[in-house]
Design a protein around this nucleic acid. Structure first.
Length: 499
RNA sequence: CGCGGGAUAGAGCAGUUGGCAGCUCGCCAGGCCCAUAACCUGGAGGUCGCCGGUUCGAGUCCGGCUCCCGCAACCA
């Protein structure tokens, strides 16, 4: 049986337009999914939408819509990213899916059976003007910023709580036994310190008569689950849990999440798994945020970067390339049109795109459009693959891209040193060098497959290589391109931007 | 003493275990003419936020300080 690999994104809350940060997480996950498929693994790649909770319910009521119907319009918006960003996810779960609902209830029952759920009084701060609960962080000087003339009321209600505190020791033990549990390292230290400082049980239900849009708590119709509890369960419900099958085959899996999700994913969810008697996640990768022109993206500033707009303007692969190579993979990064266009022109138009045209054109001109007899590797190709693979295995997508850029640069350099266009005029044999270039371009094409799949396939087809037949590591050996393979100069890969 | 991040060439950034300060863009000067006016070579440009310490040697380690930015758990 093939090895299995499971990667999942967090589920974006459906009540928002997809923005470039969502796209970053999706693309990073997609690269891993594609890379592991190339390695011959059976891959489950999960994403979806988180659809319960107060905000959705409130907005649906305002729009005079049924909450589910309201979610439907948004869910399709996120689903549309699949084509726009060339995502290869295999599972798209919505937390309103019937199976997820029953799975979340089963999960609750297991935690309850383990003695980890109890009822307690829960004090909320409530703004009568908004008719909404408010958190401390939403208040300004203890007052609702929207209704500053009204006093915030304190309201008591009975809620269910999850015994998070009970798992402090278990979490720390697990962290210590798995020093790569959370990547990068500094996030791991951050969560470890947080757990070490002590955990407070958290509320996991809401009163149905105040907010009915949630999964009913098993055996108590007066409550629905707090959206966090329900949403986290998606990582296993999507695999069919509690049925064994795919769950046993693919869980535990790799999770990818933003820095705002560090606690929920690597401490809350892990304690929940332990409580339900399930294995903890395999690894969690935390990425940063993308700012726009140096500022945090927000609706009020009007600087939200929409991935659909970017793709419409620059193309899918250009956007993917920027997300992977244009910003630090695990730190905050900045988006600006100038930065994006600089990268596009210097690396895609002048770099990879031009190189592919250069090499294929030369082989047509100087080698009759066919690969000559193969010659030795002059590009340190094995070292390139090692850097490339190590970088991907440690979620350094930016380093992966840089390795590729260096490889491309070394090819341009070699062309200049070798000057085959001169030698050909002098009647010298440039065949061996043409073979080296064709072969090196094949490696570029393969390495691009997980990153910018459409471009990669175009390059490989120009070399008459079937992209579907590529397997790693077999295909990374030097000299796999057979002599006589037809080479055709194709269309321009990346058109120059209008100046 | 709430948690975390940042401060490196004009701009944007890399610098893994301490060992001659790098990359991209831009600028200047050459080369080449196969390629998407692309490519290659060389050059100018930095007291690596400030102060002190460890060391033969610190952007990198330790202590202190200044400034900027996120987050602060029941914001989904």
């Amino acid at each position: 049986m093939k090895p299995s690999y499971y990667i999942t994104t967090t589920l974006p809350y459906v009540n928002a337009e997809p923005h470039i940060g969502t796209a970053l997480e999706f693309v990073q996950a997609d690269v891993l999914a594609r890379f592991h498929r190339l390695r011959g693994e059976d891959v489950v790649f999960n994403t979806g939408t988180d659809e319960h909770g107060l905000k959705i319910w409130k907005q649906a009521v305002l729009a005079g819509m049924d909450p589910k119907a309201y979610c439907d319009q948004f869910a399709s918006k996120f689903h549309g990213l699949k084509e726009t960003l060339a995502l290869s996810y295999t599972h798209f779960i919505r937390t309103t899916d019937p199976h997820h609902v029953t799975a979340a209830q089963e999960f609750w029952k297991r935690c309850d059976a383990n003695g980890d759920i109890y009822k307690a009084r829960y004090v909320v701060k409530y703004c009568v003007g908004c008719e909404l609960e408010k958190t401390e962080s939403e208040l300004v000087d203890g007052r609702c910023p929207i209704h500053p003339s009204l006093e915030i009321e304190r309201r008591d209600e009975e809620n269910y709580f999850f015994r998070w505190s009970k798992y402090q020791r278990a979490l720390l033990t697990h962290y210590d036994a798995h020093p790569d549990f959370v990547m990068p390292k500094r996030r791991f230290h951050e969560i470890r310190t947080f757990v070490e400082d002590g955990l407070q049980d958290f509320s996991i239900s809401r009163l149905t008569d105040k907010m009915p849009w949630g999964i009913p708590v098993p055996g108590d119709d007066a409550h629905v689950m707090y959206v966090w509890f329900d949403a986290l369960v998606n990582y296993v419900s999507t695999l069919g849990w509690p049925s064994p099958g795919d769950f046993e085959r693919f869980w535990p899996g790799v999770q990818i999440a933003g820095k705002d999700n560090l606690r929920q994913q690597s401490a809350m969810w892990q304690a929940m798994l332990a409580s339900a008697g399930l294995p903890l996640s395999k690894q969690i990768f935390i990425h940063g945020f993308i700012t726009a022109d140096g500022q945090k993206m927000s609706k009020s500033l009007g600087n939200v970067v929409n991935p659909y707009d970017l793709v419409a303007r620059y193309g899918t692969d250009a956007v993917r390339y920027f997300l992977l190579g244009g910003i630090p993979s695990s730190e905050d990064g900045d988006f600006s049109t100038a930065h994006f266009e600089e990268l596009y022109t210097s690396k895609l138009v002048n770099g990879t795109g031009n190189l592919a045209a250069r090499v294929t054109a030369m082989i047509e001109k100087f080698a009759g459009g066919a690969v000559p007899e193969m010659a030795d590797d002059r590009f340190a190709t094995p070292q390139f693959w090692k850097t490339y693979t190590d970088a991907l295995d440690s979620y350094r997508f930016d380093e992966t891209v840089r390795a590729l850029e260096r490889y491309v640069a070394s090819m341009n350099q070699a062309i200049d040193v070798e000057a085959p266009f001169k030698k050909a005029k002098d009647g010298a044999d440039v065949g061996p060098f043409m073979a080296q270039l064709a072969e090196a371009l094949r490696h570029v094409g393969i390495a691009l497959l997980p990153l910018v799949p459409a471009t990669a396939e175009q390059i490989l087809r120009q070399l008459s290589v079937d992209p579907g037949s590529v397997r790693i590591p077999e295909a990374t050996a030097w000299g796999m391109l057979p002599a006589g393979h037809r080479v055709v100069k194709g269309d321009i890969l990346f058109p120059r931007l209008p100046s």
